[in-house]
Design a protein around this nucleic acid. Sequence first.
DNA 1: GATGGTTCGAATCGTTCATAACAAAAAACC
DNA 2: GGTTTTTTGTTATGAACGATTCGAACCATC
Lengths: 295, 295
Amino acid sequence: MIRIKKEIFDRMEELSPSERKVARALLADYPSSGLGSTGQLARAAGTSAPTVLRLVARLGLGSYAEFQKHLRDEIMHDLNAPVRRAESEAPREDRTDVGRSLAERRDLLDRLGSTVSGSEIERAARLLASEPKAVLISGGYYSRFLAEILARQLDQITPNIDFLPDPLGYNVGKFYGAKRNTVVVLFDLRRYQLEAAQVAALAKREGASLIVITDEEISPIADKADVVLAVPVGGIPFDSFAPLMVLVEVLVEAVLRAAGQKGIDRMKLWEDRSYLERTPHPQPDEAASPSQEAS
Amino acid sequence: MIRIKKEIFDRMEELSPSERKVARALLADYPSSGLGSTGQLARAAGTSAPTVLRLVARLGLGSYAEFQKHLRDEIMHDLNAPVRRAESEAPREDRTDVGRSLAERRDLLDRLGSTVSGSEIERAARLLASEPKAVLISGGYYSRFLAEILARQLDQITPNIDFLPDPLGYNVGKFYGAKRNTVVVLFDLRRYQLEAAQVAALAKREGASLIVITDEEISPIADKADVVLAVPVGGIPFDSFAPLMVLVEVLVEAVLRAAGQKGIDRMKLWEDRSYLERTPHPQPDEAASPSQEAS
DNA sequence: GATGGTTCGAATCGTTCATAACAAAAAACC
DNA sequence: GGTTTTTTGTTATGAACGATTCGAACCATC
């Protein structure tokens, strides 16, 4: 039995950019978005119907009808899985409030595995580990914290990392400095900020590569992005940052792998320095750019 | 949410003979047979397309498209049900590097449920929701970010929240200000900083309640704490903040519940203000203390 | 065996569909 | 820098679609 989802995951690499957009749209609302017409899926992905068909063809399916047939088989199979039967018909064990909050976030994390494909993370990691002239990282009101954590951790692996607290304000010069060979990482979550769109436009205009980290219903700026990493955020009653946090960490580890020995060397350097600096007076606070120790 | 399957079961009686044939065909190969065209379903049922449409109309749906929409919602709901653990869905065994990083964090989260008890979180939440004169929140080099996220979110629920970037420096006055009825939240993770011990000692000397958030092998300052929330951090090859992030979110939700209507009112106030402030100029950046919108 | 009320499918209409062919645009290559 | 190759949206077309209409078939009751 062909598993469409797995197939898409595995072959994400060999897809063309527009085909990837379709793949992302499909995974973001899987499998529902694949059950409509080619036009609907194309619209959701921001491309055209023929592109959808080209994706289908690349998966080895001869027609859209065949694609949908496989999809439906997959649904039938998953829905009738014996495990599911037992659990879905038995009433969910009632839990405490805390237990429920916790379980909900664990579920989000499970879903993270299927909304963002490993190869996309790898692609982002390769971009970041290629020692670009500059890596600019920025985020929104809350996501800026995640952005900053990413910046600090990346800084330990590879040079030229910059966290921009105010990308359109006093930080704007960074974009004009290094033209090519710049990578911009942008966090843009629900309640998408117009600012993010401006930053994205600016980045692309200057020829930078753009990595966008967004939630499932995918930020409007995702079109412009070279890599889109979509995470589930839940939203009942609040959005959760847990999957985002995990994505950041997974990405960092992937970058470390991609950077190889260079990254390890830099990290060691880091540790030495940190010990030297820590003993005198513990942590005199610091500005935007990352510096010393851990915890 | 309308459950097509249940609806059909319940109303089987009031259907006409041909409609019943359609219903049977649908249930026999559910939900797959409903995802095709009216003609296909009609053929499977041995009737005609109009009969299918009449059945749909009798279920109270205005069109076949609407019928399929409900079907797909149902599929989405069932497929994303929080059961999907032991099941085939995701690339389980393919053990890529990314997959492994991810799985490891999910395991950490599973462990979180057993390292920190719900009642401890509730106790911390009650403390924080009791409207103390001051709530002082601080953290280490990395954990400060989590501390700040906690501060911002708590600030939306209950007043008098303060994030202290430098608790022993220029922020130290906060500890001397309000004597009793102060709650101090301290993040202290592996490579425990001596600073944290000093802050803890100071806090207790001034009679404040102390909540310590630490990792499993428990910070030396935990002795002094009124509530200790211990999270697993993993540490292979790096510590993960994901469980910490989750703990923060779960704690915030618990505080919201404990604060009751007051908390909700304050949150609403917040939203209103945020909309007022957001429209003029989008986020001119800000200092440490929490202010307006989201994302 | 006529009557009124359902039930049902053939025929039909306008729309949307999947798909192939094509051309513009972008990327990659030498 | 120019040329191939790839990518991608537009257009065209015939088939299939959902939905409606309408008359035939059926069933009960008198």
